[in-house]
Lab assay of single mutants.
Amino acid sequence: MGMPNRKYADGEVVMGRWPGSVLYYEVQVTSYDDASHLYTVKYKDGTELALKESDIRLQS
């Protein structure tokens, strides 16, 4: 078993793309699913969504 190939840690605050949009919002990573390679993130309004790594970026 190798290390999970994840870029962002639980609790890390990053920018997540809103689905169907080009806009990124501040989100907190809450979990990562090794099987689906999706991150569960929480937006400031409390919305929780699963995002692909390509829809997440570090805060500038």
Rank of each mutant, 00 (worst) to 15 (best):
D10V: 11
Q59H: 15
S60N: 12
H37I: 03
D10N: 10
T30C: 11
E53L: 04
R57K: 14
T40G: 05
A9Q: 15
V22C: 14
D45S: 05
A35N: 13
L38I: 11
I56S: 00
V41H: 01
W18A: 09
G11W: 05
M1R: 00
Y25T: 08
A9G: 09
D10Q: 06
V22W: 13
T47L: 08
D34T: 11
Y8W: 09
L23S: 09
Y43I: 07
R6D: 02
L58S: 15
P4F: 08
K7A: 08
N5K: 08
S21L: 05
V41A: 05
D10W: 03
Y25A: 07
G46S: 06
S60P: 13
L23N: 12
D45R: 02
T47W: 07
L38A: 06
N5R: 04
Y8P: 03
D45V: 02
G2W: 10
S54G: 11
P4M: 07
L23W: 11
Q59F: 14
H37Q: 15
G16L: 09
S54E: 15
D45T: 04
T47R: 09
A9C: 07
T30I: 15
N5W: 08
G46N: 06
M1A: 15
Q28T: 15
D10K: 05
V13D: 04
Y32I: 00
D55A: 06
K42E: 06
D55F: 04
P4R: 02
Y24P: 02
K7W: 04
Y24H: 04
P4E: 10
S21G: 11
Y39W: 02
E48Y: 14
Q59K: 15
D55C: 05
M3S: 15
Y25Q: 10
M1P: 14
Q28C: 09
L58P: 15
P4A: 11
I56T: 01
Y43G: 08
G16N: 01
T30E: 10
S31I: 02
Y25H: 10
G11L: 05
T47G: 04
R6E: 02
Y43Q: 07
V13S: 07
D33K: 02
K44Q: 10
E53K: 02
R57Q: 11
P19M: 04
A35C: 09
Q59C: 13
L23P: 03
A9H: 13
D33I: 04
R17W: 03
Y24W: 15
P4C: 09
G16T: 08
R17A: 04
S36P: 01
E26C: 09
D34S: 13
L38H: 07
